[in-house]
Amino acid sequence: MQKIILLTVLLTSLLFASVKVDTTYATAGAIAQKIGGRLVHVTVLASPKYDPHFITPKPSLIAKLRHADLLIINGGGLELGWLPPLLRAANNAKIQNGRKGFLDMSHYVHMINVPSSVSRAFGDIHAQGNPHYATDPYVVLVMAKAIAQKLAEIDPVHENIYQENLEKFTKEWKKYLKNLDAKMLTCKEKKVVQYHRLFNYFLRRYNIKSYGTIEPLPGIAPSSKHTIELINIMKDNGVKKILQDVYHERKTAKFIAQKTGAKVVIIPHDLGADGSKTLQEFYNKIATRICQ
């Protein structure tokens, strides 16, 4: 009887094995949970309420990384300001760059806004291109496929389950995209400005033109001269929408809105940034607030 009980416990643990997955940001975490289902335990390292470039490297994050089987990063240089020292301190060989337990999602995405040259004179630019690709809802399918492949590599016993989850999620997401595309048809000829180039992928997907950013250069605080220039550009081109993220100061956007008659809308850059709990809710908020 004891042998039967022991065998049952071993089989159960094998069937419901938990792969510990750490993701740097919440959108990737939600996708990993969809693909892994009950076979994975997902931990998101960075709070979506803060600037994704500058997350505080808390000691608690070291403990999470130390026990991870898989680390999924955004890549494109987005984590360079905070992740490397945490990885060194965690000393987990499984999730180091180049190892089986490391997945850089930017390697699977076509990056845009790639600079022709890299210099501090151009602000805090990313050499590989704009790393905020997750704002494009179509990239979700690319991320899901890459995650499914990596989970199958780490946990080949459950490869069929990951593939089934991927197929189910892909079918559901394509249906969602069809509805979202229909909704975005109402947004033709929208004109916007952004604080930071956070939403270029979403805007590019739906042919929405951005006439500039409140930042004169990436990572550089707005100056009076640049603000006045942006106001004139908006007036000349009839731009009536300012896309403000959740973590930058809002005083400048409000000032510009007063001078141009534009509307400031808060747009989430990551799932949960302003309370969204699902992938659909996250992308719906982006779409609705740009189109309203």
Rank of each mutant, 00 (worst) to 15 (best):
T43H: 03
L45Y: 02
L45W: 01
L45S: 02
A46M: 02
A46E: 00
P52I: 03
H53V: 03
F54T: 05
F54V: 09
S60D: 14
A63K: 14
K64H: 10
L65M: 11
R66S: 11
H67K: 14
I73A: 07
N74S: 07
G76K: 01
G76I: 06
G81E: 07
W82H: 02
W82S: 00
P84D: 12
P85E: 09
R88L: 08
N92T: 07
N92E: 10
A93P: 03
K94R: 14
K94Q: 10
G98K: 12
G98Y: 10
L103N: 01
H107V: 02
Y108A: 09
N113C: 04
N113T: 06
V114N: 04
P115R: 13
P115K: 14
S116L: 10
S117Q: 09
V118R: 13
V118A: 07
S119E: 11
A121N: 14
F122G: 06
G123D: 00
D124G: 06
A127F: 10
A127E: 14
G129N: 08
N130K: 05
Y133K: 04
A134L: 13
P137N: 08
Y138L: 04
Y138K: 15
M143H: 04
A148F: 09
A148Q: 15
Q149E: 15
K150V: 06
L151Y: 05
A152S: 15
A152I: 08
D155A: 11
V157C: 05
N160Q: 09
I161A: 09
I161R: 12
Q163N: 12
E164M: 13
N165R: 12
E167Q: 15
K171C: 05
K171V: 06
E172D: 13
K174A: 05
Y176T: 07
Y176F: 12
L177G: 04
K178D: 12
